[in-house]
Computed example of a mutant assay.
Amino acid sequence: MTEQNFFIFGAGYSGKAFAQMRPRDVSVAGTTRSSDKFPALEAAGIKPFVFDGHLTPEIRVQLAKTTHLVVSAAPGDDGDPVLNAARETIMHGMPLLRWIGYLSTVGVYGDHGGAWIDETATCRPKPGRSTMRLDAEQAWHELGEKIARPVAILRLSGIYGPGRNAFVNLENGTAKRLVKKDQVFNRIHVQDISAALWFLARGDYGGVFNVTDDEPAPPQDVVAYAAEKMGVAPPPEIPFETAQLSPMARSFYGENKRVANAAIKALGFTFGMPDYRLALDSMWADGSWRGEGESDRRSPIRRG
């Protein structure tokens, strides 16, 4: 098999989980905005680089031998930071590049009044972050066409997993049960993001894929289930209308949809954590819910 070298722009929570699932014969490099985070990336098996919006000579050397590119960096007012810095390098300085994966969000769909939608649904994002995401998706798609390489757009729902979940929020006292009539959200366990990336990369698949669980559910139900599992009292329900929320949080609740994931399943992919109950049960049983530290040794994330 041809040597595979992955490079992740934006090796944060999802990127580190992705690297932890790598096969032993695959190398993973990735960027962070501060060298202070190098130890965390190295612990996940990632060769670290600093990316501050400009390509260093060291990054260019690494990209020259990269076969698979993963982009997990949010666009800004000036567009996609990776494309701004690396478009010419991707087009002319990555001779071994086979595949590109771009991590986006189901936020690009906007509000659909609680209806079920799939990848064919009309995107009507609110002005701001979601609109910039959709523009970035299109820019990556167009670049893929120019260089004749498949680009997989992964539209992710709310990310959770070890260290980021209702158990942690209950333990630290930040869990809330906001109730808005008929409101549901999809979510996705970081393990399934990682597995989906590996699956699409191995198959050189391009296109748009909703990477999300099977069961959009009211957020207060997730907190209540976790509290029952922990054997603690759930926080009281708070009516959405009277809740003290930031503008960003209130905007988040302004979108309601049920997102289907049939496209990636049609290729043969199986979600390991298809609903929040199974995921919470698993993290509670193996102790991985706290994330890094002692319990992380028993993380459900498969290691190469």
Score class of each variant (00 low, 15 high):
Gly93Trp: 02
Met283Pro: 10
Val108Phe: 06
Arg302Met: 04
Gln138Tyr: 02
Ala19Asp: 11
Asp182Phe: 05
Ile188Val: 15
Val26Ile: 15
Thr242Met: 08
Val211Ser: 06
Met1Ser: 14
Ala121Trp: 05
Ser104Pro: 06
His141Leu: 15
Ile238Lys: 02
Asp135Phe: 00
Gly79His: 05
Arg149Val: 13
Ser35Gln: 14
Gln191Tyr: 13
Arg177Met: 10
Gly113Thr: 02
Pro125Trp: 08
Gly128Gln: 08
Tyr205Phe: 15
Met94Asp: 04
Arg129Val: 06
Pro274Arg: 08
Asp281Trp: 04
Ala227Thr: 02
Arg250Tyr: 07
Arg177Ser: 10
Leu96Arg: 08
Tyr225Arg: 00
Glu237Cys: 07
Ile59Tyr: 09
Val26Ser: 01
Gly272Tyr: 07
Gln138Glu: 13
Arg87Pro: 00
Lys65His: 08
Gly76Cys: 09
Asp281Gly: 06
Pro125Cys: 04
Gln244Leu: 11
Gln191Asn: 14
Gly144Arg: 05
Leu178Phe: 13
Ala86Ile: 08
Val108Ser: 06
Leu97Phe: 01
Val106Phe: 02
Glu58Gln: 13
Glu137Gln: 14
Ala40Glu: 14
Leu267Gly: 08
Ser34Asn: 13
Thr212Gln: 02
Leu96Trp: 05
Val70Gln: 04
Glu145Thr: 06
Pro216Met: 03
Arg187Ser: 14
Asn5Trp: 01
Asp182Cys: 03
Tyr13Val: 09
Pro216Arg: 05
Phe185Thr: 04
Ser295Gln: 12
Phe199Gly: 03
Ala217Asn: 02
Ile59Phe: 06
Val232Glu: 11
Leu278Lys: 15
Thr122Leu: 13
Phe167Leu: 08
Asp182Ile: 00
Pro300Leu: 12
Met1Glu: 11
His54Gln: 15
Lys37Ala: 12
Ile193Ser: 03
Asp275Cys: 13
Asp36Asn: 12
Asp111Cys: 08
Pro247Gly: 09
Phe269Pro: 03
Asp204Ser: 11
Thr174Val: 08
Pro48Ala: 05
Asp36Phe: 00
Asp192Lys: 10
Trp140Val: 03
Gln20Gly: 01
Pro219Gly: 07
Phe185Tyr: 10
Ala64Met: 02
Ala217Cys: 11
Leu280Phe: 13
Lys257Leu: 01
Ala115Tyr: 02
